[in-house]
Design a protein around this nucleic acid. Structure first.
Lengths: 210, 210
DNA sequence: TAGATTGTTAATCGATTAACAATC
DNA sequence: TAGATTGTTAATCGATTAACAATC
C-alpha cells in the first residue's frame, strides 16, 4: 500500500538501499531477502519491508527481492530517470573536484554548465562542461531549464546566487556553502552538505569515549 | 540532569546549535531564549531545552541563555577544545579543496599532514601542510598520534588505507569515498560524507512534487 | 507439497511536544 | 514584585520492531 507522505527517515535511507543494491548487483547477486539485506546494512528485516511498503510491493513471498529489479524500482522512486539537469556555481577547488570526480550521471543528473567570475576560467571546459561568466546565468537558465543549482562558491555570494537560481526556475539547490538558505515562499528544495557539521559530529563521538 | 547515552538525533543537532550561536554571536546578540532560538532554527523551544538538558543546565530562568557562554559550552561538549589532529589521505581535487578551503581549526582540528602516491606532489606544501608519500604513513602515525584520518582518495584504496589508519591508532575516520567501511572489532568511529546519497535525496524531493 | 519470505497489522519503543512548578 | 523563562515531568506522536496470515 502506497503511503501519502513518506517520512524523511525513510527517504534518507533510499539512497543507501540503492547503493547497496548496486554493490550486490555488481557482485553478481541475483536475489536477496529482507533478512539478508538487513544484515548487510545493519537494519532489521522488518524495517526494510516497512520502508519499501511505502512505495509498493516489490518482493515475492518465499523468494525475496530480485536485486536488479528492486534497484531499478528504487532508481525510479528516487527520480533518477527524470533526466534532471544541474549547473555548478563556483569553479574553485570544490567545484572542480565535483566536475572532475563526481559522476553526476550515475545519480541521473546531466551536468550542463558551470559558472564563475574569474576571467581566466571563462570559456574553458572541464570534463566536457563549459564554464560561463556568472552574468550569463540568468539568460542561460531562461534558455535551458535546469533542475538543480550546485553552490560551491564563497559564502558571501551564496544568498545572492540562490536568489538568481530561484528566479531562474530551478527546483532544488545543492548547497555546499556554510550559509543556511531560507527560501521562503518558494517550493525550491535546499539540500545542505555541511562539512563542518559532519566533522563536529565526529569530534563529539571520538571525544566521548575516553 | 545529565543523560547516560545521548541519542544520535540530539548529537546531530549540536553542530547546528553551535553554528547558529556563532552567527548570533557575530551579529552581536548577547542573550537568547529557547523560544527565539527555536524560531530561527525551526525547532520547538521544548526540543531545545530537552536537548541541552542532556548535558547540563546552561540557562537562567527569566533570562534565557547567554549566547557566548552557551556557544562555549557546546564547543566543549563537541570536543572542540580537545586539540584533535587530522591527516588527509589523498591530495586530489577534493583533498586539495579541503586543505585550501576548509577551516579545520574552526572545528577544533589541527591538520598536521597530507599523504599521496603521486611523486610530483610529495614534498610540496599546501596551506602550510606538507605532503608525504603514503608509505610514510605508518611511521608518521607512530611518531605523531593522530585523532582523525580524512579519506579523500579513490574508492579502490579506501579499505586498505582505513586499515592502516586503524592500526596507526586513529580514533575516527572522516570518509569521503563511496565505500562503506566496516571496522569490526575496533572502536574507531566512521563518519561518512556520501555526496551521492545527498544528491539522490534532493533528486527524490524535486521529483515528488509535480 | 513444505519451507521460505513477503506485506501488513499490532505492539513497543523512543523522540518530540506540552505543561507547569521553580525561580531569576 | 510581576513577568519571563528555565529544567523537568507527563502526554503525545511517530518510527521501529515483532508477529503472523497469505502465498510463492
Amino acid at each position: 500500500m502506497k503511503k501519502e507522505k513518506v517520512s524523511s527517515a525513510v527517504i534518507r535511507r533510499l539512497p543507501r538501499y540503492y547503493r547497496h543494491l548496486t554493490d550486490l548487483s555488481l557482485a553478481g547477486v541475483v536475489r536477496i531477502s529482507s533478512n539478508a539485506l538487513g544484515k548487510s546494512m545493519n537494519l532489521t528485516a522488518s524495517q526494510i519491508r516497512q520502508d519499501l511498503s511505502c512505495f509498493g510491493e516489490f518482493g515475492q513471498q518465499g523468494y525475496g527481492y530480485n536485486v536488479d529489479s528492486l534497484r531499478g524500482q528504487i532508481a525510479e522512486i528516487l527520480g533518477m530517470t527524470h533526466h534532471h539537469t544541474a549547473v555548478i556555481l563556483g569553479v574553485g577547488n570544490l567545484g572542480r573536484a565535483l566536475m572532475e570526480n563526481f559522476p553526476f550521471h550515475r545519480s541521473g543528473f546531466d551536468l550542463t554548465a558551470a559558472f564563475d567570475v574569474a576571467p581566466e576560467l571563462i570559456g574553458k571546459r572541464i570534463s566536457n562542461v563549459s564554464i560561463y561568466q556568472v552574468s550569463e546565468l540568468e539568460r542561460y537558465l531562461r534558455e535551458h531549464p535546469t533542475s538543480v543549482g550546485v553552490l560551491t562558491l564563497p559564502q558571501s555570494a551564496a544568498v545572492q546566487m540562490s536568489e538568481l537560481l530561484v528566479a531562474g526556475g530551478v527546483k532544488g539547490i545543492w548547497n555546499f556553502t556554510n550559509s543556511e538558505l531560507h527560501l521562503e515562499n518558494t517550493n525550491v528544495i535546499v539540500e545542505n552538505v555541511h562539512f563542518a557539521d559532519s566533522l563536529l559530529t565526529l569530534s563529539y563521538l571520538i571525544s566521548e569515549e575516553t
